[in-house]
């Protein structure tokens, strides 16, 4: 199998980037997309002309959230519900031309080539994406029963891997799906109720300050989310936010 990659190359945040085209032969349809890039990098290394393409990866089993890549305009490529590392070349035609771009958002500055800096997500979590419990102060785990439906609902949104595909696809580069997943995960549980209002207000303030846009409800984040998190979470976030803003306006500023 042969593929033609058109890849964004950018040496550092200060350099200007551009697309470069590479032809890679002898690929196998059973390869994962990242393995095909590995092959390209080995090829570049052998040729000693250009440095290999930098891209993020780690677990290569779809759970760490490290891999990214916008493939032909689609974050994580054409398959629904998978990350780039789980995408295989079976999904492409022989000799297909594939454009590979990094996540594009002002809040995810490019580090090099296809690698971006997603630390804004960490800062959003720092602003309130937790339950304030110190080690050792917890009561017995079964002391507070939690309705199964609620626990399942919490799990479904807690499955977020923080990859940033939602931001990458959003026309506003909004991270509302990411914030909503954490907010609704924690507020669905009794343990998380105490800080419910502060949490949603603080996290959204942080979201806005990081430069992410607003939600236009186009639902494209839901379509590209590798963990199939529903935009219903964003609606729930809006509700919680408005309620909190009315209840604790002083916490807004």
């Amino acid at each position: 199998m042969k593929l033609i990659f058109e890849i964004w190359r950018q040496e550092s945040p200060d350099h200007k980037g551009q697309f470069k085209t590479y032809e890679v032969n002898n690929l196998d349809t059973n390869m994962s997309f990242l393995e095909a890039l590995d092959v390209l990098n080995e090829q570049l290394l052998r040729e000693k002309k250009e440095e290999p393409v930098a891209f993020d990866y780690d677990c290569r089993e779809g759970i760490c959230g490290m891999c990214s890549l916008v493939i032909n305009g689609e974050p994580h490529g054409p398959l629904q519900g998978v990350t780039t590392c789980q995408l295989h070349l079976r999904s492409f035609k022989d000799s297909e031309r594939i454009t590979v771009e990094p996540w594009r958002a002002k809040s995810f500055p490019i580090v090099r080539d296809l690698v971006t800096d997603r630390s804004a997500f960490d800062r959003i979590i720092s602003s309130g994406g937790y339950i304030s419990v110190n080690t050792g102060s917890a009561g017995d785990a079964n002391a507070i029963p939690i309705e199964k439906a609620k626990a399942d609902q919490a799990f479904d949104v807690a499955a977020c891997i923080g990859c940033g595909a939602c931001v990458a696809t959003c026309k506003n580069s909004s991270a509302m799906l990411f914030v909503a997943a954490k907010v609704t995960h924690l507020s669905a549980l009794k343990q998380g109720e105490v800080e419910k209002e502060e949490r949603v207000l603080k996290m959204m303030t942080s979201h806005d300050m990081e430069g992410f846009g607003s939600c236009s409800q186009t639902k494209s984040c839901e379509a590209v989310c590798p963990k199939n998190i529903s935009t219903a979470a964003i609606t729930a976030l809006n509700r919680e936010y408005l309620r909190a803003a009315v209840k604790k306006p002083q916490a807004l500023s």
């Binding site: 937790y130 339950i131 419990v133 080690t135 050792g136 102060s137 917890a138 009561g139 017995d140 785990a141 079964n142 507070i144 029963p145 939690i146 309705e147 199964k148 626990a151 399942d152 919490a154 799990f155 807690a158 995960h185 924690l186 549980l189 343990q191 998380g192």
Partner: peptide, 22 residues
């Protein structure tokens, strides 16, 4: 035992039965 208590308090959504228990 303490780990489970701690994790639940942090909001880890462990599987539960219909009675709401772990």
């Amino acid at each position: 035992q303490n780990i489970i208590d701690q994790a639940v308090a942090q909001g880890v959504p462990f599987a539960r039965d219909y009675g709401g228990f772990l």
